[in-house]
Each structure stands twice: as structure tokens, then as C-alpha cells.
Nucleic acid binder design. Sequence first.
DNA 1: ATTAATTTTGCAACCGGTTGCAAAATTTTC
DNA 2: GAAAATTTTGCAACCGGTTGCAAAATTAAT
Lengths: 336, 336
Amino acid sequence: MYHMAVTLREVAERAGVSRSAVSRTFTQGASVSAKTRKKVEKAARDLGYSPSLIARSLATNRTKLIGLIANNFQNPVFLEVFDLYTRALQERSLRPLLVNLTDQTDPSASVQLLKQYSVDGVIVASSTLPPLFAHAFKEAQVPVVHAFGRFASTPDIHIVGIDNEHCGAMAAETLFKHGYRHVAFLGGPQSATSAQDRAAGFFRRAKEIDLSIAEIQYADAYAYDSGQRAMGTLLQNRKFEAVFCGDDLICMGAMDAARDAGLSIPQDIGFIGFNDMNMAAWQAYNLTTIRQPTNEIILSSVELVVSMLETPGRAPEVRLFPCSIVERSTLRPLKK
Amino acid sequence: MYHMAVTLREVAERAGVSRSAVSRTFTQGASVSAKTRKKVEKAARDLGYSPSLIARSLATNRTKLIGLIANNFQNPVFLEVFDLYTRALQERSLRPLLVNLTDQTDPSASVQLLKQYSVDGVIVASSTLPPLFAHAFKEAQVPVVHAFGRFASTPDIHIVGIDNEHCGAMAAETLFKHGYRHVAFLGGPQSATSAQDRAAGFFRRAKEIDLSIAEIQYADAYAYDSGQRAMGTLLQNRKFEAVFCGDDLICMGAMDAARDAGLSIPQDIGFIGFNDMNMAAWQAYNLTTIRQPTNEIILSSVELVVSMLETPGRAPEVRLFPCSIVERSTLRPLKK
DNA sequence: ATTAATTTTGCAACCGGTTGCAAAATTTTC
DNA sequence: GAAAATTTTGCAACCGGTTGCAAAATTAAT
């Protein structure tokens, strides 16, 4: 590099003031007279100065970096999620440091990494990681909130999400209301807490209302292919009229498998999904599904992590948002 | 916070060596005797020490942060793109600092932002931004490579991507080979260089081989809805047998619009897309499309930005990767 | 066993900011 | 206009590392 970035010292010299004065004009709420502020601002403009966040971070022990941990880069909902997160953080002049967990679920490596970068806080955005994962950050003294995490009545950490158990129950009810009596369950990966909870709620409510569950399958990932494959095995032995899929993407895979087998939807077989991702509204699927309020969850989790920066001792809190049914056309019409 | 993070000084004290010794054991290629290294490592382990990247960055003027600029969080291909980028960077122990451009395309704000974070380099991953955008980073002395950018024979900056013009021509040829003689063009947003180039190549080659272009439309974004809408207007006046869509997602929207109008694919109307995103293989679409080697482009652009860190004066380079046709089932079978 | 060559080590300055504190300057009060 | 109260300013230490340089320790050569 030819000319190094211009520093605070140079601005100070040009403006004929001390370094502190320059620093103060660039930090919120510091006291500087209008006169010096003007001088400094001019000098800064002339020199094209902008303060180094690295140096500031070192001095203030705040980086304005938020670790954003995700482990599902296969599911397009996560693009929506990233979009919302980057925007929400941006608005508060924070920045996401993206961590792609791929398959290693050992928290210690991520904790180590994010500690090295001295992130101010961490948002774990995943419904498949065990609660322990996010907990590791708390132990490392890093403010953390688990978005899309499992709801616990006595949380050690902040959780923002939905009541998956209740949503599973909603699915059962919806199927029943549409006149189905024999249904199948096609869940997400069995290791995912979200999948477990949705299943539990679904089964419980089904029992209560006498909805018979003919088949149970678990996809090995929240992914199209997995849904397609799982539906394949489900179809070998068809004793059900509709399927509750634990995720829209899985549902799309399942629908395509069903169509491939010559079934038409919803005449021969019904589907209800989960999430209401953008693609659920696509004409080729037009999925009846349970809408998860992604936007609210994200905004709320950002808000929460920000508040932890201000009040580190804040007691862990659970924030649950209600889901709702979005009726489209993959279940047969309601009986009148 | 109760106990501040453990610092190099504490490790030094516990190990009974100087701070430099500790620093050296943690920096690649520095000279330390086996004896001290052992002592330091033990002390570090006992204390749970890991060096602060912030402090290191300040001292070395290297942050290991790469700005990753994107402006299309609607198109699921970008999730694939993020996945690949985060992994590729991670492997080289670099980290992406994600910038979501939403709609403001004024480079100066991003330049400013990324300069403040002193990113080591920037990757602009977008086929819709003007070449000027990426150029602004060069002027600000920041190593930059434009991935998916417009190919220029005398580049001022590094470009990695495909020859969109040539790919447009491939589309024309493919349609012709499949026996189509009257086709429509449904491009991406007209302001996107990629869309312009694909269009140019398509039109040029069509003229050469006497493929008649009955209709021309441009979607207002690389998005499903835009494709659906554009196809709607295209269908008002149907004088074509097939459509070349400038992007798979647009194509899916267009296909759904066509099906909604009662057409079947490929019997009544043919489609060819662009990108070969994962979803193109979904049964509901099973798109014949032009495959863009995303993986190669990404790996290559990471490699390039890394090499610029090592050799700052490196001359700008264009790297183009070949595209290929992926035949699925949205064009009628080849004549024998 | 000396001396020369090489490696390891610690000192101290530096990276680019922030901030507590006391002095200087300004404003308010009487 | 002088004294008191308030605001602004600069000094200097600090954040947690790195690194050039010379001294100390080790190894190699004679």
C-alpha cells in the first residue's frame, strides 16, 4: 500500500488540537465545543479520515460485531433469515460475523473463534442445535440468544421462537377439520429439537381428537431431497390420506415424490407444511402450511441481544410468538 | 463481566517469560525454543488463553476479514453462494463480513464501512452491479475482486465469472437444436450487466441461425414473482413456442404462469433457464438450463483475493469459466 | 577450551484509538 | 469586575498484541 490510512493524529495536527479532541468529536456524547468540532470536522473531511473501528474496539472493548451462527445453508428460508438479520443489525450499526457450522456441532470451536474476534454478542439461529450449544456461550461470558430454539420453562439463556409443540397440535387439528382421519407424519431430522417438539404436539393432539396416525417417518435433514426420499418410503405402503410435514422444504420434496407416483394433490393426498417460507406460495406447490413469524423472531432476537449489551446481567427470558395457519390448496376444501 | 479475558501478559507471567515470547509462540514462523514454547503452551492452556485478533489486527494491520457484498437476498442461489464462500474463507482462516446492499447502490457508503472495519479485501458477489461499484474499492486501495461480474477485455479490477454473451448464444443454439424457430426472450432486470450481455449474445446468435425472436420482456428482478409477472404479459400475445429465461428463478415463475394459463410443458411451450441452481432439478420444474459453475467462480475469487493480500500490486485479471447445457425436461425432445 | 556463528530472548516502541484527571478556558452569579 | 461554577482541553496511561534491535544464551567451529 502506498499511503497508509489517515489516522487521528494527523487530523489532530492539521486541526491544531489534541488527539483527544479529535477522538471526542467522533464519539457519541463526548463534550467538545462547537468551535473545535468544526475545525476537526473540516480537517477530517480534507484528509478523508474515518476512525478505525479496530483501534476503537481495542480501547473500548466493544467490537459491534455479532456472531451469527447457522448450520443450515441448504434451506432457502435461511436466505430470508440472513436478509432480515443483516438489515436489523445494520440499522443498529452492528455487523454480523457469519459462522457456517456445516456439520461439526462441537460448540467449543465456535466459542473459541468468536471469542478471538471478541464479538459483542452471539445469535444462534438454528432449530436443530441442542440447547447445550448456545449455552456454551453463556459459560464463556458471551451474551447469547438462541433464535428458533427450544422453549424451556426455566431457561438459562435467552430463547426466541415458537411453541413447536403447540404448532404440531395445530397441524393435527387442521387436518382433522379438513376431514382427514388417517394421516402420516413426516418430520424433520429426529435429532432436531424442533422436529421432536412438533412431533410430540402432533401426536398428543391426534390422540385426543382421534386422528389416527398411520405412518411415521423422519427426513434426515430439513431439505428437499430428504423430504422426497422419506416420502418415497412412506408411499410404499399407503394407508393415509394426508401428510403433515415438519417443514415446507421437506413438504415440497414430498409433494413431488407423490406426484411422481401419479397422485394428485389434494384429490388423492393432502399436505400440510411448516414455516410458510416465500416459496410456499409458489404456484407449483401453493402449500397449506403453518406460518412461523420469522420476521418477529429475528427482530426480537436482535433487540434482545442488543439489550444484553447494555444490561449484561439481564435474566434469561423466553419469547414465544404465535404461529398461524395459512390455507392454500394442498388440503382438500373444508367440509361445509 | 466478572473476569476479563485472559491476556498475553498474564500468560507471560505464569510461564515466567517475556511477553514477546508468548506472542512468538502464537505467531506462525517466529523463532522460539522448544523449551519456552512448551512452558508457554502449558500456561496458556491452564489459563484458557486465546490471542485477541483485534489487538493483533491493530499491530499487524491485517484483520483476516473479507467484506462480502451482495445485493440479492431474494434469490436462493445466493444461499449456495454464501455457503461456499463461508466455507472457502473459513478454510483459509478468513471470515466474511457480510454487507447487504438492499437497494442503495452508492458504493461510497460501503467503501467507508468496510474501510472502518479495515477488511483485508472485498469480494463483490453480484451480477447486477455496475463495474463502477467494485472499482470504488480499488480507488480506496482495498483489494477487490468482482465475482459474477461483467467481463471486460481491459479490466481495472479482478473479475471472475462467465462469458454471459457466449452463454446467451448457447441458449439460442440449444433452442434451435430442439427444433424451435419462434421464441421469446425473458431477461433479468435490464439494468443488470449480466442480463444485458445474455440478451446481446442471444439476439446475435439467433439472427445468425435464423431463430426468430417473437417477443422480448425483462423481469424487474432476478426473482420468482418478477418472472411470473413478466410471463403474464408475454402470454397475452403468444407467437412463440419456447422461452429463454435469463435466470432459473425467473424461469420457475414463468413456468408457473404458463401452467396457470393451462399450458403444459414442454408440449405446448418450452423453457430454458440459466444458472442451474439446486432447485432447477426439483421435479416440479426439472428445468433444462445453462449451468453456471458457481463453485469454481467462488473458489477462484477467494483464491484471487487471497493472492492479492500477498501480492498487492498484482495486475488485474479476468477469469472466465465455461458454462454447459443441462438437459432436463422443459424443452421438447431432440429430433432424431 | 576459546572463539565465532547462530539462535533465542527481552526491552521498548508502536499500532490507532479512548478516557480519567487536573489545568485552562469559559460562563454564570453576585 | 471578582469569585464560583461549569465546560472544554490536553496530558498521559491504557487496550492487547507485534516486532526491530541488541544482549544473552546456545551451538558449531577451530
